[in-house]
Computed example of a mutant assay.
Amino acid sequence: MTNICSLQISESRDFYTKLFDFAIDYDSEWFVHLISKDKQLELGIIEMNSEIVPKDIRKEPTGTYITFVVDNVDEVFETAKKNKYEVIQSPENTFYGQRRMLLKDPNMYIIDISSPI
């Protein structure tokens, strides 16, 4: 399970459940646990200033990005536009055989969304 530190818990929850195959398993003011509908992937969203979060990482993310492989990146792109999420790069075909787009989540994480061509 990967945890994302957030100052916007509800916005982050909505971002990941609208764009990807996540259901809400647990929801509170300080932590949200998401699980894919096939129960193969888990994602936590935790309040950045929680005492549980190590002090050294209570800041805007740098040097990392999260990749999700989906069946159809263009469908995710349309959902992102409809919800007015920040698109950094519209879908385009890559030299390595994927169709790829980039978004920013509510916490400033770069989200790479790809589909095999």
Rank of each mutant, 00 (worst) to 15 (best):
M101H: 05
S50F: 02
C5V: 08
M48R: 15
R100I: 12
R100L: 13
N49V: 04
S12C: 10
E42G: 15
N93H: 12
I117Y: 09
Y26C: 09
L19M: 00
G63I: 06
T64L: 10
D25Q: 14
L43S: 07
F20D: 07
T79F: 08
L19G: 00
T94G: 08
L103A: 00
S10W: 06
S115H: 04
F77G: 02
S12W: 03
D21Y: 08
I4T: 00
V76E: 01
V73C: 02
V32R: 03
N3Y: 11
V70P: 06
G97W: 07
V76K: 02
R13L: 12
N72M: 02
S50A: 04
S90I: 08
K82N: 06
I52Q: 09
Y16T: 03
L34C: 07
V70W: 06
E92R: 12
D38F: 01
H33N: 14
R99K: 14
S90T: 12
I113D: 00
D74M: 04
F31A: 09
V69C: 13
K55H: 07
D14C: 11
L7R: 08
I46C: 07
D25H: 10
Y96H: 14
V32P: 05
I52N: 07
D38P: 05
I110S: 00
I117C: 05
T94M: 09
S90D: 15
K55N: 06
N83Y: 05
V73Y: 00
N107Y: 04
R13I: 11
L19S: 01
S10G: 05
Q8W: 05
N93C: 11
T79N: 12
P106R: 01
I117K: 15
N3Q: 08
N93R: 14
R100H: 13
I88H: 03
Y96A: 13
T2P: 12
M48S: 02
K82S: 08
E51D: 12
R58F: 03
G44H: 12
M101N: 00
I52E: 13
M1R: 07
K84W: 04
L43V: 10
L34D: 06
I113M: 03
E51S: 15
S28T: 15
M101K: 02
L103N: 01
E11T: 04
T64N: 10
T17I: 11
E11Q: 08
E78Q: 09
F22V: 14
R58L: 03
P54M: 05
R58G: 08
Y85I: 00
M101Y: 06
G97Y: 10
Y85V: 00
G63A: 05
T79W: 04
Q89R: 11
L43I: 09
F22Q: 11
I111P: 01
S90W: 09
F20W: 13
V73T: 04
P106T: 06
A23F: 11
V87D: 02
G63M: 02
L19C: 00
F95Y: 15
V69F: 14
L41Q: 14
T2C: 07
M48C: 07
D21T: 11
S10P: 10
K84C: 02
N93A: 13
I110T: 11
K84G: 02
M48V: 10
E60M: 10
T17L: 02
H33T: 13
F20T: 14
I57C: 00
I24C: 13
V87E: 01
Y65T: 09
G97N: 10
N72A: 05
G44A: 12
F20I: 15
R99Y: 03
I117E: 15
S6E: 06
V70M: 05
L41I: 15
